[in-house]
Structure formats: C-alpha cells, structure tokens
C-alpha cells in the first residue's frame, strides 16, 4: 500500500502531514512548513527543532498521546497522531 495517502501521512493537530519513509516527525513537519509544535512552560513561547540530533530537547511533541517525545528522533510512521505540546505535556 506504499504510495497511498493513508500510509504516508500522519495527523498533526488534526491535519494530515505527508512524509517520506525514513524522515523524522520533526523533519516532516518542517518540510510541511511547520517550524514549531511546542510552547514552553514558563513563557509559552513556540519551539521546534534546534539541534536536530536529540541533544537540546526543544523539539518535544506529543506522539500518540505520549508527551515529551523528541520530534527530531522519532521516525514518522503512517497513521501516527502527533499533537502540539504545551508546557510539560502533563495536566495537573
């Protein structure tokens, strides 16, 4: 089924994002023109990829309900649900 839309997109905040196999979630979001997918917990400032290699933890995102995943290291898989993370990613 490779090549069909549903196997090569994931959902980001309800919208489909196309990706090529082998790309990370963060790279696919950037390729789709999204530069940020997280807001910080103090200043609520937008963040996305900074170091690109798993060191800075700026690119944290919610992957299939699990917060705090590094988008730059998470391989994009068809059918994933990715959502913007606000603050710590946990509710009190």
């Amino acid at each position: 089924m490779r090549g069909a839309d549903d196997t090569t997109t994931f959902q980001f905040d309800g919208e489909p994002i196309a990706f090529r196999a082998g790309q990370s979630v963060g790279a696919a979001l950037i390729a789709a023109g999204r530069l940020s997918w997280r807001t910080t917990r103090v200043g609520e400032r937008p963040r996305g990829i900074f170091c690109g290699i798993g060191v800075c933890f700026d690119c944290l995102v919610v992957v299939d309900g699990r917060p705090n995943q590094r988008a730059c290291l998470t391989p994009a898989l068809a059918g994933m649900t990715i959502s913007t993370q606000s603050g710590t990613g946990w509710t009190p």
Partner: peptide, 13 residues
C-alpha cells in the same frame, strides 16, 4: 517513497 511519487505539500518543498 514520496507520496504518490510527488513531493510533500507546504511551502518548503
């Protein structure tokens, strides 16, 4: 493996 042989949508192709 790009979707439909094309490139992803969005401004940064």
């Amino acid at each position: 493996s790009a979707p439909g042989g094309g490139t992803p949508p969005g401004p940064l192709r």
